[in-house]
Structures are given as C-alpha cells and as structure tokens.
C-alpha cells in the first residue's frame, strides 16, 4: 500500500512536469527569449518567480520551454531507437542460427564504444539542431532494446502457443506481430522507459558540454551550461532549478520503470 502511494506520487510528478512543459506557452509568464537589460540577474521575486539570467530572461519561462525541448528530443530519440531495436532484435531472435550470431557479435562490438564518443564525432559533421540531436541519440540508443527484444523472442519462440500457431499455418507476420511482439511488450516498455531517462541525460550532458542543442534554443542542458559562470557571481537560481527538474524527471522515470520491472504489476487481474 505504501509502495503504491509512492508510485502514485512519481506518476503525478512526471505527469505534472510533462503537462507544464507541453503547455509551456500557456503557463510561462514571459516569452522564453525576451530580454530585459534592466533586470539582469534579479533574484527570485514575485515578478520573476525563479529570477532572471544574465540577459534578463525569465528563468521560469525558459525552464518550461527548455523542458519541452529536452523532452521532445528524448521522446524522438526513444521512438527511433525503439523502432530500430525491435527490428534488429526481432530479426536476430526470430531467425536465430548464423544470422543471430553475426548480428549479436556486431551489436556487442557497437556496445563497447561509448555512445557519447560516437555522438561527439557525428555532432562535428552534422552540427545539428534539435532534430539531429534526437536522431543521433536515437541511432546510438537502440542496442539494449535490441538485446531485450531478441531474448524475449527466443524465449517465446519455444512456447507451445507459438508451436500451435505454426502448426495451424499462421502467417509469419501474424506470429511476429500478434504472438511474439505482443507478448514482449512489458519487457520492451520497461527498457524503453529507462532509455527515455538515458536520452534526457544524454541531451543534458551534450548541451552542458556545449555541443548539444544550439544556444538559441533553450533546453535544460543549455541552461546548465550558461549557468556555470553565473554561479560564480552568486546567481544560484539560474543553475539550481534546471538541475532540480532534470533530477526529478530522471528519478521519477527510474522509479516508475523499477515498479514496472516487477512482473506482478504487469498483470492487472491476477
């Protein structure tokens, strides 16, 4: 019971963050890029709830808008990595044999290279904005998903209901879609959730290094990047609030993912 209440709290927190950022245009009191040179570095007050930054921009407004950017990049990359992961893992797991061996060795080789390095190299080439960030994170984030899908497919392939379906001459696409993928959803969901947290973290780290989202677009990572200098002059509010948001979002996702890992929760009426 206590666990359930805690989980409900994390659900609501994540829901609130997503809600506020998605409707940031309604909730933010100022335009996120509106500069006001008369009010630079003003501490949190009734006018500017979370203060302003070095250009006099409202931190609260930027926080909401930046959250939208960060979450959109994370969602986009997760959808991409989910797609690649399912196709790759699915082929590997379903066909097995030599195909599986080759595909898995290749995957292991890729897994040994840290994603950050690959993204760094590509960022130099594409020097992209928001969507190319999503693309890059997505292209490097599918490895674990592929592994999970593969192992689920291998496990399910031996089940009797798949044998039944094979015996009745069920078309292959139907077995893949209706039997294998459908029953892998709980596992895929959990790994995707963790991937999502990972993607947020990746965007934040890259932007913090100054090679992520272009400076013109506010994102949580970008805000942290610019807040580095501000902290030195005592403007703690510029860095603290994005930090708290990143922390809470990733924490909430991890707690939710952890709860879904528990197989008892997957079945509603057992």
């Amino acid at each position: 019971m206590k666990l359930r209440k805690a989980l409900l709290f994390w659900y609501s927190l994540l829901g609130l963050i997503v809600f506020l950022t998605v409707f940031s245009t309604i909730f933010s009191p100022y335009s996120p890029n509106e500069m006001n040179m008369d009010e630079i570095y003003s501490a949190p007050s009734s006018d500017h709830w979370l203060g302003t930054d070095h250009l006099g921009r409202d931190v609260f407004s930027r926080l909401l808008e930046g959250g939208k950017v960060t979450l959109v990049v994370a969602s986009g990359s997760v959808i991409l990595s989910l797609f690649i992961g399912i196709v790759y893992g699915g082929i590997s797991g379903y066909f097995g044999g030599v195909i599986d061996t080759v595909m898995m060795r290749l995957l292991e080789a890729l897994i040994t290279i840290p994603a950050l390095i690959i993204i760094l190299v590509f960022q130099v080439i594409v020097q992209g904005g928001m969507w190319s960030m999503a693309l890059l994170i997505g292209l490097t984030g599918w490895l674990v998903t592929a592994r999970i899908v593969r192992s689920e497919f291998i496990r399910l392939k031996e089940e009797e209901f798949i044998k039944m379906a094979n015996m009745l001459g069920t078309p292959v696409w139907n077995i893949l879609w209706g039997h294998l993928l459908r029953n892998s959803i709980p596992a895929i969901f959990v790994v995707t959730l963790f991937n999502f947290a990972g993607a947020i973290f990746m965007e934040v780290s890259l932007s913090f290094l100054g090679i992520g989202i272009p400076p013109t677009i506010p994102s949580w990572g970008n805000m942290l990047y610019y807040a580095q200098n501000d902290i030195l002059i005592g403007a703690w509010w510029i860095g603290l609030f994005p930090g708290i948001m990143i922390f809470l979002t990733i924490l909430a996702i991890n707690f939710i993912g952890e709860a879904w890992k528990n197989p008892e929760r997957r079945r509603v009426n057992d």
């Binding site: 089940e159 009797e160 209901f161 044998k163 039944m164 379906a165 015996m167 009745l168 001459g169 209706g178 039997h179 459908r182 029953n183 959803i185």
Partner: peptide
Amino acid sequence: RKQDVFTIFQDALNSFNPSV
C-alpha cells in the same frame, strides 16, 4: 494439420497466447 488433425498439448495454459 489444418483440416484433418487437431492437437491438444500437455500444458493448456501455454497453448494459448497469454495476451489475447
């Protein structure tokens, strides 16, 4: 297999797709 024979396996629970 489709028209003439019907097969019942040992474990009925596993003979059905758990999510359908």
